[in-house]
Structure formats: C-alpha cells, structure tokens
C-alpha cells in the first residue's frame, strides 16, 4: 500500500514532467549559467583555482535544486492538487516519499549532464573514481532533497514561499554542501584521497538517515490544516 502510493505520486510527477520537460530544462539551464558565472570568478589566466570544480559543482546542484523544489510544489497548487493529495485516504508519509523520489530523479537527471560539463570545463578528473563520486552525489542529493521536499511542501500555502524556502533550507543543508564539496575535492586531489571521501560519504549517509526519519516523522503534523 505504502510503496504503491509513493510510486503513484512519483508516476504522476514523472508523467507531467515528460509532457513538457519544463522543470528539467529550466533547472538545467539555470545550473549551467551558474557554472559559467562561477567560472568567471574562479578562473584566472586560464588556470582554475584549486578545488574550484568541486565547489562549483555543488553550488550549482544546490541552487538548481532550490529552483526545482519551488517549481515542483508550485505545480501542486494549480487546481488544488495539494488538497486532493492530502484528502486522499493515503498515509501522508507515502506522499512525501513519492514527491522526494520525483525530486531526486529530477536532480539526478540534471547531474548526469552537469557533472561531465564541469569535468570538461575545468579539466577535473571527476571520473577517476566513478563509484565514490556516484555515492557522494547520491548521498548529497538525497539529503538535500529530503529536507527540501519537506520544507517546500509545508511552504505551499505560505504567501512568501519564494523567499522562505532558501531561508529554511540553506542553514540546515550546509553540512550536506560541506561534505559534498570536501568529498569531491578529496577525489580530485592527486593522488585521490579515497579514505577522506569515504568518511564524508558516511557523514552524508548519517545525515540522510537522521533527516529523512525526521521528515517522515514531522510530515503528518505539518501538513494538517
């Protein structure tokens, strides 16, 4: 029952996105412009500042993620979809999981293009350790989206949601950004520092477990009128 509802919510989001590619295309465009803007700040005489690639990659993911979160839930406000979802005889946590999976898929799709782009533009050896990089990206994306989905969902009815989402989201998810940036920087070091990367991955895993449990626990009381 729980998984079925979560997958139904996911299927609805994926179906809407496949019709228009609205969120994916705008988010991706924004992330690429982000990378370019930072490139102007951090590339000097054709040389990239140390660890810049790791920082730029994660800033682009975080900013684009915020945008995607805002848009996904903006969509739910049309025709009162949120109310319909909450009125459905379904566990609230399943709705949360469905929305979370949708956001994670969306961000993963954006990362598939973003990571090679950063590797190419900054000649960063991001693919030297593909499994560790994938683990970092998964841990970071799930942590960011886990907190973000809850906050974006509770802000749906708020008038000032555009400004409130970053205010709520960034202070809480900074550990994710730090772990992502430092972990990626460790992978980019020559020779790559695998043990440091693994340590940051385990911190990300701990963060994900704690905050997704918290989100599942608080989603129900937060989403009642």
């Amino acid at each position: 029952m729980f998984t079925r509802i979560a997958l139904l919510v996911l299927r609805k989001d994926v179906a809407i996105e496949f019709r228009s590619f609205e969120i994916l295309s705008t988010t991706l465009f924004f992330a690429v412009s982000c990378v370019l803007v930072f490139a102007f700040a951090l590339v000097r005489d054709g040389e990239v500042v140390a660890d810049a690639a790791a920082g730029i990659l994660w800033i682009a993911i975080a900013f684009a993620g915020t945008l995607a979160l805002g848009r996904t839930f903006e969509r739910e406000r049309y025709a009162e979809t949120v109310r319909a979802l909450l009125l459905a005889p379904a566990p609230r946590a399943a709705i949360y999981v469905g929305k979370l999976l949708g956001i994670v898929l969306l961000l993963a799709a954006a990362e598939v293009i973003l990571v090679p782009l950063v590797a190419l533009l900054f000649s960063a050896a991001l693919f030297a350790r593909p499994l560790l990089l994938a683990a970092l990206l998964t841990g970071g994306t799930v942590g960011f989206a886990g907190v973000g989905t809850l906050f974006a969902a509770m802000l749906v009815r708020s008038r000032t949601r555009d400004i409130m989402l970053p205010i709520l989201l960034y202070p809480i998810t900074v550990p994710v950004i730090i772990a992502g940036v430092r972990g990626t920087a460790a992978l980019l070091a020559v020779p790559s520092d695998d043990s440091v990367a693994v340590m940051w991955i385990s911190l990300l895993a701990a963060f994900d477990v704690v905050f997704i449990t918290l989100a599942l626990w608080t989603f129900e009381p937060l989403m009642t009128e």
Partner: peptide, 8 residues
C-alpha cells in the same frame, strides 16, 4: 511566513 508560520 504568514498563516501557519508557527508550525513552519
């Protein structure tokens, strides 16, 4: 945050 800000 407007109405409901206490829960947020």
């Amino acid at each position: 945050a407007g109405p409901g800000s206490d829960k947020l």
